[in-house]
Every structure is written in structure tokens, then in C-alpha cells.
Design a protein around this nucleic acid. Structure first.
Lengths: 214, 214, 214, 214
DNA sequence: GATGAATGAGCGTTCATTCAT
DNA sequence: AATGAATGAACGCTCATTCAT
């Protein structure tokens, strides 16, 4: 009767809603429209997701999972290749940027979602986000040990790096970068700026975390 | 009879909607809610603003006006004080960050609002935004001439700097910076990273804009 | 100071609203839009007209006045020209049709307005409408006396004639006449049909008013 | 449990809206009022009708269907009864008038609704309206062949006949016929006028369609 | 004679969600 | 596992009208 196994409805709903999220934004992504697009009834969505927030949370979770896999795979591919911390850091940055640009819809809900929706998102799920920071910290500390980086506070610096990358990604995804600017050069410059920031050879030193002196 | 002069309704609407925009986003900012919050009828809003877009445009314009005044005043205060480009650049960065943190509602409207909501916004009004970049470019070029900065493409670098600052501001305003990180150190690190990025003494060089070589 | 006497506001309002009535229909004719089009405030309209209905009534009255003048002038032009009742009747019909087609906006409010709006219209004003019927009755009776027409009940026949003309006018104005039909021939046929209906030479006889036999 | 089968909601909506359309016109017929009158939520209407236009279209379609059935049944009842074209034409006229008077709501929707409200109505659906004309044309042509009628252009004359009937129906339904006029005599006179108009024995001839000579 | 400010009511429509089946 | 029917709440917006000036 049904020899070709259908894509499970849950999967279809997630896929469609992700696309709709990208094209129209969260507020314009409606249960009805998802249902219409999937070809099921609106009610059916509620079988798999408690409500709209729950669907959103599932998408966020998927996003973090994808990013994690992405970074993990890249790191694994590099292991044993005798590359230094600078290259590893650069690779992590590129990987992060690539993820953000290739999955703007995920990126948006993962990093730019309005606090209104965030509040309802179970806090513990965001711990996954910190895993990226942890990864970066390890590389920074390794570079510091090898005296290639000057990183007095790895957590602080890792956060600043992510923040820097985030600035570029979010402006690009929002289409708010001057049209006169070449995208490739823009990304390259951001990444080089990150590396310059941790380099031991620059003449600026990072302040310590908790150091509130002017 | 009327000893305490009331705040004009138009002013109240702008203030309330600005806050609502920050807290809830454009789609959830509703004319009705604004009216309820202000204490007037929904219809009254339409006396002062043609429609929801028009209200948004007024907010954007106000925001850019404020930022412009802010930067302009700071620059004016510095004129003649015999300070070098590095200090001036640093000052500009601090001023930008301060504006973003002190006026999160305006900042969001100006730099984070998704273009989806602004298709109808007259392009020319965004030229005001570019004035900030122009300001920064001048400083960068001056530093380059004095061989303090290494800035082959001032426009590109200025955009990257704004992007970097933006990353920090937006994550802070969204409350998405690790609680373990001290805000002050965070900002300082970002600014130092910016300065390191342009410094002549670092060992990384910026690529040229339009240079698409790998 | 004001050497060129302006067209009185009341006059302007009537003119604009008549046009708007034609272009958009009664329900879409709004006080605000009239005001905008006239260039005055919405409030000003209320100086000259108690409310929207009152404005409508003024338009209706104007319409009946125009039709009356139109018919009266035509009749006057014919007086003494030694024309027979058939020609006079034909002229009255043509005049009525012309008025309806040249002033569709007036025609609509005069003869097609929804009872909803009618109810509020002072009944006595509609007596003017009956003057047209009276005019027609006179001609029919004259033709009957001269044994050119067979009109046992002039009032009844006059009403039927107006009704017949009305059918044509209203369908034409509503654009509901088959595009394959030539407008001129259509009107001519209607008028000839009217004349055939009263002609003494046809083989059909009109029934008497109040005669309910089958 | 549910012994009295309820009238389906869709049916109720159609009935109520038809009446409301007659009493108040399209613009004043509101989804909310319909819902209130039916006793359901406004949202429910959208389960059965895509939007207000769609509801209107459904009403128009229903109306034409009813008229078609009505005329068709009458014709079928007459087949084989050896009646002449004059009787058949008279019967068609009476049937048309009866439909218009017994179903004033439908009649209004079908023949008086302003095209402004129907721009989006699929043209092909109006072809059904032309079927009535076609029916009448056949009878006219048959009468012409038998030299009972003088009908040089059947389409033109059929349109004029419908127009004449329409004039009477619409004025009666709108309550704009002089109260002194007996309804029955009024209708009879109109129908006799129609027959006189096509009769071979009258002394007026119909002009040809497309004949624009004065 | 004219206006700006204001409003309550209403519009068509969409939404997330529930419930009985 | 899935659906059709239904709903209350909300949306942006326009309306006729009033009132103080």
C-alpha cells in the first residue's frame, strides 16, 4: 500500500518552518501557513509540537546541534595534521562565519532572537551554545602556552572573538553592509582582525577580566 | 487650569513605541498596544503618523539624528586638543559603544531591525548612517598618512570596525554575553582589538577590498 | 486682499462629493476624503451639512432640480413648434435617458439608492420626482384625446414608461449590457418600444389600473 | 442526542448574507454582522469562504443557478403543449419577473450589484447570465420566422426586453413605484408593452444593431 | 467660518489554539 | 496519527462625528 516510506511529518514540519523562518521571520511564520505548505492540517503540528514556542525551541536545538557538528568535524579533520593554534583558531572562526552565512535562519533564532521568545526557552538548552566558547578557549590557551598568543583571560577573549564574528555575520545577513564593500574582503578582514587581536606581536595588551581600572 | 504642561502626545507615542520595539520587535509592536500604553485611542496615533511604517521611520530618523549629534559633539570637544588619530579613533569607538548601550532601543531600530520591515523606508535617509563611517574613514586615513595605522582600504576597515563594535553592543544589549564576563573588560577588549587591528606594528595585514584571491 | 472671489466651500464640497460618489460609490465616499480633496478640514464639512446623510440629501435634491430644469427647458423649447404628442413623448424619453447617462452619479442616488439611506430622506422631497411623471401624464392624456395613443390609465402608463427607461439606464450605467450590443441602437430600441407600447395601432391593450383580472 | 438536524453553518451564512446584502448593500454587509446574526464567530465564516468576495461570488452563482432552473423548468413544462412563440415569450417574461420579485435578494446581487464590487468576479461565471438571453433569442427568432414578430436583431431585442423587465422589477423591489399604482396592473402593462414592442402589427420598427444613423 | 485634536465603533482578516471525532 | 470545525483575541486601519478654540 505504502511502499515508498514518506518523510516523517515531524521532519517535514521542521524543514518547512525553518524555510519560512528564513523567508518571513518568526512572527510571520504561522502554524497555518506551515500546515498549508506541508500539506497537513494545522492541528497535526500540535501532535509533534506542544505549541509554536516548542517548535521554535526544536529549531534552535537543531541549529546548535548543527553548529556543534560542524565545528567538531572541522577540528577532527585537523587533528594530527601538525597545525598550530593560529591556524586552528582561524579555522574555527571561518567555520563559525560559514555556518552563520549558510544558515541565516538558524543563526537568527540562535543568536538574534528577541528576548521575548528567549525567556520561554529552557535555559539549560543554551549550555550547548557555551560549548563553542569552550572549544575556542582551549585553542587560545594552547596558543598562550606556546607564547604565540597573548591571552591573559581566555574566556574573555573567546567571547570577544565570537562577538566580533557575530557583528560581521549579523550585519551581512541583515543586508546592512555597505554595497561598496566586497563580502570576501570584509570577512577576511574581520578574521585577520581577530588574529591580530590575540597576536603576541601587537603592541596592545588585553586587560584582565574583572579589571575595572580606566 | 493646566499648570503642569503635558508631554505632547506625539512625543509620548515615540517614546512608548521605541521601548515596545526594543522589548517586543516590530511585529509585536502594535498600534493598539502603544495607544493603550500611552493612554490614548489607537486612532489618535494616526493623527501624528500616517501608519505603522511611518512611525518606525520617525524612530529611525530620530535615532540617527541622536547618534550624529553625539559623535559630532565629541569630535568638536576634541578639536584643537592636539590628540593623535589613535586617540581620536578610540574616542569614536567609545562614543559609538556608549550610544548603543545607553540607547538600546534606538540602537536596535538603527542597526538590527530586519530589512523585511523596512522595505518602504526611503533609502536616502540611511545616508545619515554612512556619515558615521565617513567620519571614521577620515581618521583612519589620517593615521595611515602619519604611518601610525596600516589601512590600505579605509572604507573597508571602517566598516569592519563598526561591525566589530556592533557585535559587542548587540550581544550585550540582548543579554547574551556570558555572565562570567565583566562588561567593562569586555568593552575594553573589543576596543583594544579594534586598535590592534589597524596598528602598524601588528604582523597581520589587511587585504584590499575587491581582492578576491583566496 | 481677496480680489478673486473663491468658489464657496459649500459648492466645492458638493462638487467633489458628487464626483466621489460616481467614482467610488456612496459607502466609499468619506467625509475625510472629501475634505482632503477639497483642501479643507473634515470638520468644515459639518458647518454646511449636518452629517453625511444631509450631504447626500443635498446631492439628491440637486439631482432632481437638474432633471427638472432639463425636462422643463426641453419642453419650453418645443412649445409652439407645432409638434404632436408622439414627438413630445419621444423627446421627454430621450431627455430622461440623456440625463441618466450624462449624470450617472446623480442618477444613482436619485433612483437606485439603497432603502437604508432612503429611509432617512425626508419623504416630501421625493414629490419632486413625481413632477416628471406628471409631465409625462399630460402628454399621454393629450395623445389619448387626439386618439393617437391608447392610454386608459395615464398614471399607470407613465410609470411603466419611466420604469422601462430606468431599466435601460441602470443596466447601461452599471456596465451590465452585453458588449455585443451597440449602445445607440439599444437606446433607440427602448424608446421605440415605449412608443409602440402606447401607440393606438398595436394590437395589445393596456389593462386598467386596479384591474386584477388575469 | 441530536434529533433536529441543524442547518449547516455554510447554508446559514449564505442565507443571512443574502438578506443582509439586500437590506444594506455590499459595503454595509460585514463579516462580523453576518457572524453575529448567524450566531457564530467571524472566524468561522472563513472556514467556508476564503474572503468577503468569495462569499459574494457564491451568492451570485447560487442566484444564477436558481434562475436557470426556474426558466428551464417552465420551458420544459410547456414543451409539446402546442403553444406559439408569443405565449412562450410571455411565459419567459412572467417567469423572469416572478423570479425577480420572489427572490429580491438574489435579483439584486445578480443584476444590480455595482461592478465596483465585482471586479474580481471571474467573468466566465457571468456567461450563465447570458443563457437567459439566448433562450429569449431563440423564441424571438422563431416568432420572426413565423412572421408573428418583427425582430431584425434578436440579440438586441432580447436585451431590450430583459432591460424593460429589469426596470419594473428593480423599481418594485426598491419600493419606488408610486403607491397609487396597482402592482398587478403594473406588471401586466410592462409585459404587454414588451409584446407590443415585438408585435408585427405595430407601426414602429426596431432599428438594426450597429445602425448609428440618427 | 474654520480647524486640530481626539475618539469609539467598526472593518476584513489572521492568529494560535482547542476539542470532538 | 490525523483532521475539520470552531473560536477569542488581536491586528492595521478608516469611519463619522464631536468639541474646544
Amino acid at each position: 500500500m505504502n511502499p515508498t516510506p514518506q518523510i516523517p511529518l515531524r521532519r517535514q514540519i521542521l524543514t518547512i518552518s525553518r524555510k519560512m523562518l528564513l523567508q518571513e521571520g518568526f512572527d510571520r511564520m504561522s502554524m497555518r501557513k506551515i500546515a498549508r505548505s506541508v500539506g497537513c492540517s494545522a492541528t497535526s503540528i500540535y501532535i509533534y509540537f506542544k505549541n509554536k514556542d516548542d517548535l521554535l525551541h526544536a529549531l534552535i536545538e537543531e541549529g546548535f546541534e548543527m553548529l556543534h557538528v560542524s565545528l567538531h568535524d572541522e577540528l577532527a579533520a585537523q587533528t594530527g595534521n601538525n597545525v598550530g593554534p593560529a591556524d586552528t583558531l582561524e579555522m574555527l572562526c571561518r567555520c563559525f562565519v560559514r555556518f552563520g552565512m549558510e544558515n541565516p535562519e538558524y543563526y537568527e533564532i540562535m543568536f538574534q532572537l528577541h528576548p521575548k521568545h528567549m525567556r520561554r526557552y529552557p535555559v539549560e538548552k543554551f549550555r550547548k551554545a557555551r560549548r563553542n566558547i569552550d572549544l575556542m578557549m582551549e585553542v587560545l590557551e594552547e596558543g598562550h602556552r606556546q607564547q604565540l598568543f597573548k591571552v591573559p583571560d581566555a574566556r574573555l577573549v573567546a567571547n570577544v572573538i565570537v562577538s566580533t564574528l557575530h557583528g560581521g555575520i549579523s550585519l551581512m545577513n541583515a543586508g546592512r553592509v555597505d554595497v561598496k564593500i566586497d563580502r570576501h574582503a570584509y570577512v577576511e578582514t574581520i578574521i585577520k582582525s581577530v588574529l591580530a587581536g590575540v597576536s603576541n606581536k601587537g603592541d596592545y595588551e588585553y586587560v584582565n577580566n574583572q579589571d575595572n581600572s580606566p
